[in-house]
Protein backbone atom coordinates (compact mmCIF):
# COMPACT_ATOMS: atom_id res chain seq x y z
CA UNK A 1 0.00 0.00 0.00
CA UNK A 2 1.57 3.37 -0.97
CA UNK A 3 1.63 4.89 2.52
CA UNK A 4 1.88 8.56 1.50
CA UNK A 5 -1.17 8.48 -0.71
CA UNK A 6 -3.08 6.27 1.74
CA UNK A 7 -2.37 8.76 4.57
CA UNK A 8 -3.56 11.62 2.36
CA UNK A 9 -6.92 9.97 1.61
CA UNK A 10 -7.41 8.96 5.27
CA UNK A 11 -6.85 12.64 6.18
CA UNK A 12 -9.41 13.66 3.52
CA UNK A 13 -11.92 11.16 4.99
CA UNK A 14 -11.44 12.45 8.55
CA UNK A 15 -11.56 16.04 7.29
CA UNK A 16 -14.95 15.43 5.64
CA UNK A 17 -16.35 13.67 8.72
CA UNK A 18 -15.16 16.34 11.14
CA UNK A 19 -15.68 19.41 8.93
CA UNK A 20 -19.20 20.22 10.20
CA UNK A 21 -17.97 20.24 13.83
CA UNK A 22 -15.06 22.55 13.00
CA UNK A 23 -17.26 24.91 10.97
CA UNK A 24 -19.89 25.02 13.74
CA UNK A 25 -17.17 25.80 16.29
CA UNK A 26 -16.25 28.91 14.32
CA UNK A 27 -19.77 30.34 14.51
CA UNK A 28 -21.90 31.82 17.29
CA UNK A 29 -22.63 29.47 20.18
CA UNK A 30 -26.35 28.83 20.80
CA UNK A 31 -27.73 29.39 24.32
CA UNK A 32 -26.09 27.03 26.78
CA UNK A 33 -27.95 23.83 27.56
CA UNK A 34 -25.07 22.05 29.22
CA UNK A 35 -22.05 19.89 28.45
CA UNK A 36 -23.92 16.62 27.84
CA UNK A 37 -26.32 18.41 25.53
CA UNK A 38 -23.49 19.78 23.40
CA UNK A 39 -21.71 16.39 23.28
CA UNK A 40 -25.00 14.93 22.09
CA UNK A 41 -25.34 17.59 19.37
CA UNK A 42 -21.75 17.08 18.26
CA UNK A 43 -22.27 13.30 18.01
CA UNK A 44 -25.42 13.87 15.95
CA UNK A 45 -23.63 16.21 13.53
CA UNK A 46 -20.56 13.97 13.22
CA UNK A 47 -22.79 10.92 12.78
CA UNK A 48 -24.66 12.68 9.98
CA UNK A 49 -21.36 13.65 8.32
CA UNK A 50 -20.25 10.00 8.54
CA UNK A 51 -23.53 8.96 6.92
CA UNK A 52 -22.91 11.40 4.07
CA UNK A 53 -19.33 10.20 3.54
CA UNK A 54 -20.60 6.59 3.35
CA UNK A 55 -22.00 7.49 -0.09
CA UNK A 56 -18.56 8.74 -1.16
CA UNK A 57 -16.84 5.54 0.05
CA UNK A 58 -18.89 3.35 -2.30
CA UNK A 59 -18.92 5.81 -5.22
CA UNK A 60 -15.87 3.91 -6.62
CA UNK A 61 -13.64 6.94 -7.14
CA UNK A 62 -10.55 5.27 -8.59
CA UNK A 63 -7.93 7.76 -7.45
CA UNK A 64 -9.08 7.69 -3.82
CA UNK A 65 -9.56 3.93 -3.57
CA UNK A 66 -6.49 2.79 -5.54
CA UNK A 67 -3.94 3.02 -2.66
CA UNK A 68 -6.07 0.65 -0.52
CA UNK A 69 -7.85 -1.57 -3.03
CA UNK A 70 -11.58 -0.96 -3.36
CA UNK A 71 -12.39 -4.25 -1.56
CA UNK A 72 -10.84 -2.80 1.61
CA UNK A 73 -12.88 0.41 1.18
CA UNK A 74 -16.11 -1.64 0.96
CA UNK A 75 -15.16 -3.53 4.12
CA UNK A 76 -14.40 -0.23 5.86
CA UNK A 77 -17.78 1.10 4.65
CA UNK A 78 -19.42 -1.93 6.28
CA UNK A 79 -17.67 -1.66 9.66
CA UNK A 80 -17.78 2.12 9.92
CA UNK A 81 -21.52 1.85 9.17
CA UNK A 82 -21.94 -0.06 12.44
CA UNK A 83 -19.75 2.46 14.28
CA UNK A 84 -21.69 5.43 12.92
CA UNK A 85 -24.98 3.82 13.99
CA UNK A 86 -23.63 3.72 17.56
CA UNK A 87 -22.50 7.37 17.28
CA UNK A 88 -25.92 8.45 15.96
CA UNK A 89 -27.78 6.42 18.62
CA UNK A 90 -25.74 8.10 21.33
CA UNK A 91 -27.22 11.44 20.22
CA UNK A 92 -30.86 10.85 21.42
CA UNK A 93 -29.69 8.73 24.36
CA UNK A 94 -27.59 11.61 25.77
CA UNK A 95 -30.40 14.13 25.17
CA UNK A 96 -32.88 11.92 27.05
CA UNK A 97 -30.41 11.27 29.91
CA UNK A 98 -29.79 15.01 30.15
CA UNK A 99 -33.47 15.87 30.11
CA UNK A 100 -35.93 12.94 30.45
CA UNK A 101 -38.82 15.24 29.47
CA UNK A 102 -37.55 15.12 25.87
CA UNK A 103 -38.68 11.48 25.72
CA UNK A 104 -42.15 12.79 24.91
CA UNK A 105 -40.82 14.30 21.66
CA UNK A 106 -40.29 10.78 20.32
CA UNK A 107 -44.05 10.13 20.18
CA UNK A 108 -44.79 10.38 16.43
CA UNK A 109 -48.39 11.49 17.08
CA UNK A 110 -47.85 14.08 19.81
CA UNK A 111 -44.27 15.12 19.05
CA UNK A 112 -43.24 17.82 16.57
CA UNK A 113 -42.70 16.75 12.91
CA UNK A 114 -38.97 17.42 12.96
CA UNK A 115 -38.53 15.06 15.92
CA UNK A 116 -40.49 12.37 14.07
CA UNK A 117 -38.15 12.93 11.10
CA UNK A 118 -35.18 12.30 13.40
CA UNK A 119 -36.74 9.12 14.81
CA UNK A 120 -37.59 7.74 11.34
CA UNK A 121 -34.08 8.62 10.15
CA UNK A 122 -32.61 6.58 13.01
CA UNK A 123 -34.98 3.68 12.28
CA UNK A 124 -33.94 3.75 8.60
CA UNK A 125 -30.29 3.66 9.64
CA UNK A 126 -30.93 0.72 11.97
CA UNK A 127 -32.69 -1.00 9.05
CA UNK A 128 -29.68 -0.40 6.77
CA UNK A 129 -27.27 -1.95 9.27
CA UNK A 130 -29.46 -4.94 10.20
CA UNK A 131 -30.21 -5.78 6.55
CA UNK A 132 -26.51 -5.55 5.65
CA UNK A 133 -25.00 -7.45 8.57
CA UNK A 134 -27.61 -10.23 8.54
CA UNK A 135 -28.50 -10.25 4.81
CA UNK A 136 -27.68 -13.94 4.38
CA UNK A 137 -29.33 -14.89 7.69
CA UNK A 138 -32.57 -13.29 6.50
CA UNK A 139 -32.23 -14.94 3.07
CA UNK A 140 -32.37 -11.52 1.40
CA UNK A 141 -31.16 -11.78 -2.21
CA UNK A 142 -28.37 -9.44 -3.31
CA UNK A 143 -30.34 -7.36 -5.81
CA UNK A 144 -33.40 -6.49 -3.61
CA UNK A 145 -30.95 -5.86 -0.76
CA UNK A 146 -29.05 -3.29 -2.86
CA UNK A 147 -32.25 -1.41 -3.77
CA UNK A 148 -33.46 -1.47 -0.15
CA UNK A 149 -30.03 -0.38 1.07
CA UNK A 150 -29.93 2.60 -1.30
CA UNK A 151 -33.49 3.77 -0.48
CA UNK A 152 -33.07 3.46 3.31
CA UNK A 153 -29.66 5.17 3.24
CA UNK A 154 -30.96 8.17 1.27
CA UNK A 155 -34.03 8.34 3.55
CA UNK A 156 -31.82 8.27 6.68
CA UNK A 157 -29.68 11.21 5.49
CA UNK A 158 -32.61 13.22 4.07
CA UNK A 159 -34.71 12.89 7.22
CA UNK A 160 -31.73 13.71 9.45
CA UNK A 161 -31.31 16.97 7.50
CA UNK A 162 -35.04 17.69 7.91
CA UNK A 163 -34.57 17.05 11.65
CA UNK A 164 -31.69 19.57 11.88
CA UNK A 165 -33.63 22.15 9.86
CA UNK A 166 -36.62 21.78 12.18
CA UNK A 167 -34.74 21.79 15.49
CA UNK A 168 -32.85 24.95 14.49
CA UNK A 169 -30.06 24.26 16.99
CA UNK A 170 -26.76 25.08 15.26
CA UNK A 171 -28.81 25.63 12.12
CA UNK A 172 -30.44 29.00 12.67
CA UNK A 173 -27.93 31.48 11.27
CA UNK A 174 -27.67 31.96 7.47
CA UNK A 175 -24.16 30.53 7.23
CA UNK A 176 -25.12 27.47 9.32
CA UNK A 177 -28.04 26.88 6.94
CA UNK A 178 -25.56 27.25 4.10
CA UNK A 179 -23.37 24.52 5.64
CA UNK A 180 -26.20 22.01 5.84
CA UNK A 181 -27.50 22.90 2.36
CA UNK A 182 -23.98 22.41 0.94
CA UNK A 183 -23.81 19.05 2.73
CA UNK A 184 -27.22 18.01 1.32
CA UNK A 185 -26.19 19.10 -2.18
CA UNK A 186 -22.94 17.13 -1.95
CA UNK A 187 -24.85 13.95 -1.02
CA UNK A 188 -27.32 14.54 -3.89
CA UNK A 189 -24.38 15.10 -6.28
CA UNK A 190 -22.68 11.82 -5.24
CA UNK A 191 -25.96 9.87 -5.51
CA UNK A 192 -26.57 11.40 -8.98
CA UNK A 193 -23.05 10.42 -10.05
CA UNK A 194 -23.46 6.83 -8.82
CA UNK A 195 -27.03 6.22 -9.98
CA UNK A 196 -27.26 8.35 -13.16
CA UNK A 197 -23.94 9.58 -14.59
CA UNK A 198 -21.88 6.40 -14.19
CA UNK A 199 -24.65 4.06 -15.48
CA UNK A 200 -25.05 6.43 -18.44
CA UNK A 201 -21.29 6.22 -19.11
CA UNK A 202 -21.51 2.41 -18.97
CA UNK A 203 -24.49 2.43 -21.34
CA UNK A 204 -22.30 4.17 -23.93
CA UNK A 205 -19.64 1.42 -23.66
CA UNK A 206 -21.55 -1.85 -24.02
CA UNK A 207 -20.06 -5.32 -24.38
CA UNK A 208 -21.42 -8.43 -26.10
CA UNK A 209 -21.25 -11.97 -24.75
CA UNK A 210 -19.12 -13.92 -27.25
CA UNK A 211 -18.57 -17.15 -25.36
CA UNK A 212 -19.86 -19.18 -22.43
CA UNK A 213 -17.86 -22.24 -21.40
CA UNK A 214 -18.77 -24.63 -18.61
CA UNK A 215 -15.83 -25.27 -16.29
CA UNK A 216 -15.30 -27.99 -13.73
CA UNK A 217 -16.79 -27.29 -10.29
CA UNK A 218 -20.10 -25.59 -11.29
CA UNK A 219 -18.31 -22.60 -12.77
CA UNK A 220 -18.77 -20.74 -16.06
CA UNK A 221 -16.28 -18.71 -18.05
CA UNK A 222 -18.02 -15.82 -19.73
CA UNK A 223 -16.16 -14.06 -22.54
CA UNK A 224 -17.12 -10.52 -23.55
CA UNK A 225 -15.97 -8.24 -26.34
CA UNK A 226 -16.45 -4.47 -26.51
CA UNK A 227 -19.21 -3.35 -28.86
CA UNK A 228 -18.17 -0.21 -30.73
CA UNK A 229 -15.31 0.87 -28.47
CA UNK A 230 -11.79 -0.26 -27.54
CA UNK A 231 -12.63 -1.89 -24.22
CA UNK A 232 -10.88 -1.33 -20.94
CA UNK A 233 -7.34 -1.71 -19.74
CA UNK A 234 -6.93 -3.73 -16.54
CA UNK A 235 -4.16 -5.22 -14.47
CA UNK A 236 -4.13 -9.01 -14.00
CA UNK A 237 -5.94 -9.95 -10.79
CA UNK A 238 -8.31 -6.97 -10.78
CA UNK A 239 -12.10 -7.23 -10.84
CA UNK A 240 -15.13 -5.39 -12.21
CA UNK A 241 -18.86 -5.06 -11.56
CA UNK A 242 -20.72 -6.91 -14.29
CA UNK A 243 -24.27 -6.24 -15.51
CA UNK A 244 -25.68 -8.96 -17.77
CA UNK A 245 -28.64 -8.44 -20.04
CA UNK A 246 -30.33 -5.64 -18.11
CA UNK A 247 -29.64 -1.94 -17.91
CA UNK A 248 -26.79 -0.42 -15.86
CA UNK A 249 -29.43 1.83 -14.27
CA UNK A 250 -31.21 -1.12 -12.63
CA UNK A 251 -28.59 -1.89 -9.94
CA UNK A 252 -28.27 -5.52 -11.07
CA UNK A 253 -24.48 -5.59 -11.19
CA UNK A 254 -22.26 -8.11 -9.41
CA UNK A 255 -18.50 -8.02 -8.71
CA UNK A 256 -16.31 -10.68 -10.42
CA UNK A 257 -12.58 -11.07 -10.99
CA UNK A 258 -11.18 -11.14 -14.50
CA UNK A 259 -9.79 -14.60 -15.23
CA UNK A 260 -8.22 -13.64 -18.56
CA UNK A 261 -5.03 -11.88 -19.52
CA UNK A 262 -5.37 -8.18 -20.38
CA UNK A 263 -3.34 -8.91 -23.52
CA UNK A 264 -6.26 -10.60 -25.29
CA UNK A 265 -7.07 -9.32 -28.82
CA UNK A 266 -10.02 -7.01 -29.59
CA UNK A 267 -10.35 -5.93 -25.95
CA UNK A 268 -11.73 -9.34 -25.03
CA UNK A 269 -12.20 -10.02 -21.31
CA UNK A 270 -13.28 -13.15 -19.45
CA UNK A 271 -14.82 -13.70 -16.04
CA UNK A 272 -15.00 -17.11 -14.38
CA UNK A 273 -18.04 -17.31 -12.15
CA UNK A 274 -19.08 -20.05 -9.76
CA UNK A 275 -22.75 -20.92 -9.35
CA UNK A 276 -23.51 -19.64 -5.85
CA UNK A 277 -26.76 -17.67 -6.06
CA UNK A 278 -29.72 -16.79 -8.31
CA UNK A 279 -27.66 -14.54 -10.60
CA UNK A 280 -24.68 -16.88 -10.96
CA UNK A 281 -26.90 -19.95 -11.51
CA UNK A 282 -28.48 -18.20 -14.54
CA UNK A 283 -25.10 -17.46 -16.21
CA UNK A 284 -25.22 -20.68 -18.25
CA UNK A 285 -28.48 -19.64 -19.92
CA UNK A 286 -27.23 -16.21 -21.09
CA UNK A 287 -27.44 -16.17 -24.92
CA UNK A 288 -24.40 -15.33 -27.06
CA UNK A 289 -24.66 -11.77 -28.26
CA UNK A 290 -26.42 -10.61 -25.10
CA UNK A 291 -25.52 -7.11 -23.94
CA UNK A 292 -23.27 -6.70 -20.92
CA UNK A 293 -21.82 -3.72 -19.07
CA UNK A 294 -18.49 -3.74 -17.25
CA UNK A 295 -17.74 -1.20 -14.51
CA UNK A 296 -14.05 -1.54 -13.78
CA UNK A 297 -11.29 -2.28 -13.34
CA UNK A 298 -10.93 -2.09 -9.57
CA UNK A 299 -8.73 -3.69 -6.93
CA UNK A 300 -5.09 -3.74 -5.88
CA UNK A 301 -4.63 -7.53 -5.95
CA UNK A 302 -2.12 -7.73 -8.79
CA UNK A 303 1.46 -8.82 -9.36
CA UNK A 304 1.97 -5.72 -11.50
CA UNK A 305 2.00 -3.49 -8.41
CA UNK A 306 4.58 -5.63 -6.59
CA UNK A 307 7.75 -6.32 -8.58
CA UNK A 308 9.57 -9.36 -7.13
CA UNK A 309 12.03 -12.06 -8.23
CA UNK A 310 9.22 -14.65 -8.01
CA UNK A 311 5.67 -15.12 -6.80
CA UNK A 312 3.70 -17.56 -4.67
CA UNK A 313 -0.07 -17.91 -5.18
CA UNK A 314 -2.43 -19.54 -2.70
CA UNK A 315 -5.93 -20.16 -4.05
CA UNK A 316 -8.98 -21.83 -2.57
CA UNK A 317 -12.04 -22.72 -4.68
CA UNK A 318 -13.09 -20.02 -7.14
CA UNK A 319 -10.35 -17.80 -5.66
CA UNK A 320 -8.36 -19.30 -8.53
CA UNK A 321 -10.01 -16.86 -11.02
CA UNK A 322 -7.81 -13.77 -10.37
CA UNK A 323 -4.77 -16.04 -9.96
CA UNK A 324 -5.47 -17.44 -13.46
CA UNK A 325 -5.54 -13.88 -14.79
CA UNK A 326 -2.08 -13.25 -13.29
CA UNK A 327 -0.64 -16.60 -14.49
CA UNK A 328 -2.03 -16.13 -18.02
CA UNK A 329 -0.62 -12.61 -18.19
CA UNK A 330 2.81 -13.74 -17.02
CA UNK A 331 2.69 -16.49 -19.69
CA UNK A 332 1.63 -14.02 -22.42
CA UNK A 333 4.56 -11.81 -21.45
CA UNK A 334 7.00 -14.72 -21.65
CA UNK A 335 7.88 -14.27 -17.97
CA UNK A 336 10.41 -16.86 -16.69
CA UNK A 337 10.46 -15.97 -12.99
CA UNK A 338 9.84 -18.92 -10.63
CA UNK A 339 6.18 -19.27 -9.61
CA UNK A 340 4.59 -21.54 -7.04
CA UNK A 341 0.84 -22.18 -6.84
CA UNK A 342 -0.94 -23.82 -3.88
CA UNK A 343 -4.46 -24.67 -5.02
CA UNK A 344 -6.94 -26.16 -2.56
CA UNK A 345 -10.16 -27.79 -3.70
CA UNK A 346 -12.56 -30.35 -2.35
CA UNK A 347 -12.39 -32.93 -5.17
CA UNK A 348 -10.01 -33.56 -8.08
CA UNK A 349 -12.77 -34.19 -10.65
CA UNK A 350 -14.42 -30.84 -9.83
CA UNK A 351 -11.29 -28.69 -9.69
CA UNK A 352 -11.84 -25.55 -11.82
CA UNK A 353 -9.04 -24.84 -14.38
CA UNK A 354 -7.22 -28.13 -13.68
CA UNK A 355 -6.34 -28.60 -17.36
CA UNK A 356 -5.66 -24.90 -18.00
CA UNK A 357 -3.13 -24.85 -15.14
CA UNK A 358 -1.38 -27.92 -16.58
CA UNK A 359 -1.18 -26.16 -19.96
CA UNK A 360 0.32 -23.05 -18.34
CA UNK A 361 3.10 -25.14 -16.77
CA UNK A 362 4.60 -25.62 -20.24
CA UNK A 363 4.78 -21.82 -20.73
CA UNK A 364 5.90 -20.77 -17.25
CA UNK A 365 8.40 -21.80 -14.57
CA UNK A 366 5.39 -22.87 -12.53
CA UNK A 367 5.28 -25.45 -9.74
CA UNK A 368 1.79 -26.46 -8.62
CA UNK A 369 0.81 -28.03 -5.29
CA UNK A 370 -2.76 -29.32 -5.39
CA UNK A 371 -4.32 -29.86 -1.97
CA UNK A 372 -7.46 -32.00 -1.98
CA UNK A 373 -9.96 -32.21 0.85
CA UNK A 374 -11.51 -35.41 -0.53
CA UNK A 375 -8.74 -37.00 -2.64
CA UNK A 376 -9.26 -40.11 -4.76
CA UNK A 377 -7.72 -43.34 -3.44
CA UNK A 378 -4.81 -43.20 -5.87
CA UNK A 379 -3.88 -39.60 -4.85
CA UNK A 380 -0.21 -39.10 -3.97
CA UNK A 381 -0.33 -35.33 -3.44
CA UNK A 382 -1.22 -33.16 -0.46
CA UNK A 383 -4.46 -33.88 1.41
CA UNK A 384 -6.78 -31.90 3.66
CA UNK A 385 -6.13 -28.16 4.00
CA UNK A 386 -3.26 -25.82 3.17
CA UNK A 387 -1.60 -26.07 6.57
CA UNK A 388 1.59 -24.52 7.89
CA UNK A 389 3.32 -27.87 7.25
CA UNK A 390 2.15 -27.95 3.62
CA UNK A 391 3.41 -24.40 3.06
CA UNK A 392 6.71 -25.11 4.81
CA UNK A 393 7.26 -28.27 2.75
CA UNK A 394 6.91 -26.53 -0.59
CA UNK A 395 7.88 -22.88 -0.09
CA UNK A 396 11.32 -22.31 -1.59
CA UNK A 397 14.36 -21.65 0.59
CA UNK A 398 14.58 -18.11 -0.82
CA UNK A 399 11.00 -17.34 0.26
CA UNK A 400 11.81 -13.95 1.76
CA UNK A 401 12.07 -11.85 -1.42
CA UNK A 402 8.92 -13.39 -2.95
CA UNK A 403 5.47 -11.83 -2.82
CA UNK A 404 2.53 -14.06 -1.90
CA UNK A 405 -1.02 -13.62 -3.29
CA UNK A 406 -3.81 -15.31 -1.34
CA UNK A 407 -7.37 -15.58 -2.68
CA UNK A 408 -10.14 -17.77 -1.30
CA UNK A 409 -12.85 -17.84 1.35
CA UNK A 410 -12.27 -15.25 4.09
CA UNK A 411 -11.59 -17.85 6.81
CA UNK A 412 -8.99 -19.57 4.63
CA UNK A 413 -7.29 -16.28 3.79
CA UNK A 414 -6.98 -15.35 7.48
CA UNK A 415 -5.49 -18.73 8.39
CA UNK A 416 -3.00 -18.64 5.50
CA UNK A 417 -1.89 -15.13 6.42
CA UNK A 418 -1.25 -16.26 10.02
CA UNK A 419 0.67 -19.29 8.82
CA UNK A 420 2.81 -17.27 6.43
CA UNK A 421 3.64 -14.80 9.21
CA UNK A 422 4.64 -17.77 11.39
CA UNK A 423 6.91 -18.98 8.62
CA UNK A 424 8.71 -15.66 8.52
CA UNK A 425 7.11 -14.15 5.42
CA UNK A 426 6.75 -10.38 6.05
CA UNK A 427 3.11 -9.26 6.01
CA UNK A 428 4.06 -6.42 3.63
CA UNK A 429 4.72 -9.15 1.04
CA UNK A 430 1.42 -10.96 1.56
CA UNK A 431 -1.52 -9.68 -0.52
CA UNK A 432 -5.10 -10.84 -0.32
CA UNK A 433 -8.42 -10.06 -1.91
CA UNK A 434 -11.65 -9.64 0.07
CA UNK A 435 -14.44 -10.67 -2.24
CA UNK A 436 -17.34 -11.25 0.13
CA UNK A 437 -18.28 -7.59 -0.13
CA UNK A 438 -21.79 -8.02 1.33
Amino acid sequence: MPLGRAAFWIAVYLGLVLAPLVVLLLGPTPPGLGFRWDVSMALGFAGLAMMGVQFVLTARFRRATAPFGIDLIYYFHRYVGIVLLLVVMAHPVLVIVDNPATLGFLNPVAGPWHMSAGVISLLALIGVVIASVWRRTFGLAYEPWRVTHAILAVAAVGLALVHIEGVQYYAASPWQRLLWRAFALSVVAVVCYVRVIRPWQLLRRPYRVTGIVRERGDAWTLTLEPDGHRGLSFLPGQFAWLTLGGSPFLMQEHPFSFSSSPLQPRGRVAFTIKELGDFTRAIGSVPRGAAAFVDGPYGAFTTDRHPAPGYVFVAGGIGIAPVMSMLRTLADRGDRRPLLLFYAYRRWDRMTFREAIAALQSRLDLTVVFVLEEPPESWNGERGWITREVLDRHLPEDRLPRHVFVCGPEAMTQVIERQLRGLGVPLSQVHSELFELV
Binding site: G69, F76, V80
Partner: peptide, 30 residues
Protein backbone atom coordinates in the same frame (compact mmCIF):
# COMPACT_ATOMS: atom_id res chain seq x y z
CA UNK B 1 -5.32 -9.01 7.76
CA UNK B 2 -7.14 -6.59 5.44
CA UNK B 3 -10.47 -7.42 7.10
CA UNK B 4 -8.97 -6.77 10.56
CA UNK B 5 -7.40 -3.55 9.27
CA UNK B 6 -10.81 -2.31 8.08
CA UNK B 7 -12.31 -3.13 11.51
CA UNK B 8 -9.52 -1.40 13.44
CA UNK B 9 -9.64 1.77 11.32
CA UNK B 10 -13.46 1.90 11.63
CA UNK B 11 -13.33 1.60 15.44
CA UNK B 12 -10.49 4.15 15.63
CA UNK B 13 -12.56 6.56 13.52
CA UNK B 14 -15.47 6.15 15.93
CA UNK B 15 -13.18 6.78 18.90
CA UNK B 16 -11.79 9.91 17.30
CA UNK B 17 -15.29 11.21 16.54
CA UNK B 18 -16.38 10.72 20.18
CA UNK B 19 -13.21 12.42 21.42
CA UNK B 20 -13.76 15.40 19.16
CA UNK B 21 -17.43 15.59 20.13
CA UNK B 22 -16.33 15.95 23.77
CA UNK B 23 -13.73 18.55 22.76
CA UNK B 24 -16.41 20.40 20.79
CA UNK B 25 -18.61 20.63 23.89
CA UNK B 26 -15.67 21.69 26.09
CA UNK B 27 -14.68 24.47 23.68
CA UNK B 28 -18.28 25.66 23.27
CA UNK B 29 -18.80 25.97 27.00
CA UNK B 30 -15.42 27.52 27.69
Amino acid sequence: MRCALAQVVAVATGGLVVLLAVLFALVQRG
